[in-house]
Design a protein around this nucleic acid. Sequence first.
DNA 1: CCATTTGGTTGCCCGAAGCAACGATCAGAT
DNA 2: ATCTGATCGTTGCTTCGGGCAACCAAATGG
Lengths: 160, 160
Amino acid sequence: MTEADIALRPPTVGEHEAYCAVERQLAILLRRARTFSAGMGRKVHPELDPGAYGLLVRIDQSSPMRSSDLAAYLRVGRATISRQLKVLEELGLISRSPDPEDGRAHLLALTAEGRRRLDDARSAREGQLRTLLAAWPEEDVRLLGRMLERFNMLTEGMHP
Amino acid sequence: MTEADIALRPPTVGEHEAYCAVERQLAILLRRARTFSAGMGRKVHPELDPGAYGLLVRIDQSSPMRSSDLAAYLRVGRATISRQLKVLEELGLISRSPDPEDGRAHLLALTAEGRRRLDDARSAREGQLRTLLAAWPEEDVRLLGRMLERFNMLTEGMHP
DNA sequence: CCATTTGGTTGCCCGAAGCAACGATCAGAT
DNA sequence: ATCTGATCGTTGCTTCGGGCAACCAAATGG
């Protein structure tokens, strides 16, 4: 039975409850997403706007990369990425050098300053997360991380 | 040791990795949140804008309620809620009746049409989720739901 | 009876994202 | 070798969600 078939087969009662719970909790989380990530970002570095953080993380772990790869990874248009990268370059956090193998593309990389700011932001966010998750045993924190990672992987192969 | 103390105590290497993983995956999910929830919402009911769904869910499970409660629950200002509720009322999905116990407040409730649309949207979203999670055993789906619920509960007690 | 607080609405602004159009470049077919 | 189509990135325009501040109406407390 293929995955598509599984999706078409009518759900059992237990499955229905399980999916419904995920759907409900995901709706809450995504609805609060703006406020939440704004709150994480604002306290960290005022000049580093909340959205920029996600870009720096990805550039850090996959540089050198092109901006269209970044757009695909974050599921947003190239226009959005282009504008945000311009700001980051003006702040001196990233560098855009022409791709030697493709005259159209630019290669992105963190500058030394960019890496420093990213590390600062990351540890500050980790601190906020530690405060939030203070009551959880380490094993549960690890489990949450794994489940989120698995879920995020599911949305990897989507191209709008 | 209080929770605040735990948050202040320097993390062990294992804790650091665990928090770092959550932080990274959460950043990805929140960065994709707009596109993702837009994708969930667009296919469901074109006239029912993505943001409205979260409101209807909450009104459904806690009606009758006041709009400021809704704002607090979703961590957004009363202004935002007010505007979105106006649209929902014009579409005939909710009713705003004056609170008999407080002349300033309005009580929110789903209309019959609102409930019908909500059920449609919910089952459509559940279907999309089933497609996405088709490869997961039911037990993992259930676990994801529980972990998200626990995480969301942590952010309950926050009022900006 | 007046002052302060609270619930809700509206005006104005901002940031993020999509769409469309454009210039530049690459790649494949003739 | 050139022409055609596809791709990379940028910019202008628009939309939408949300915050802030001002405001009104109603409640609460002295």
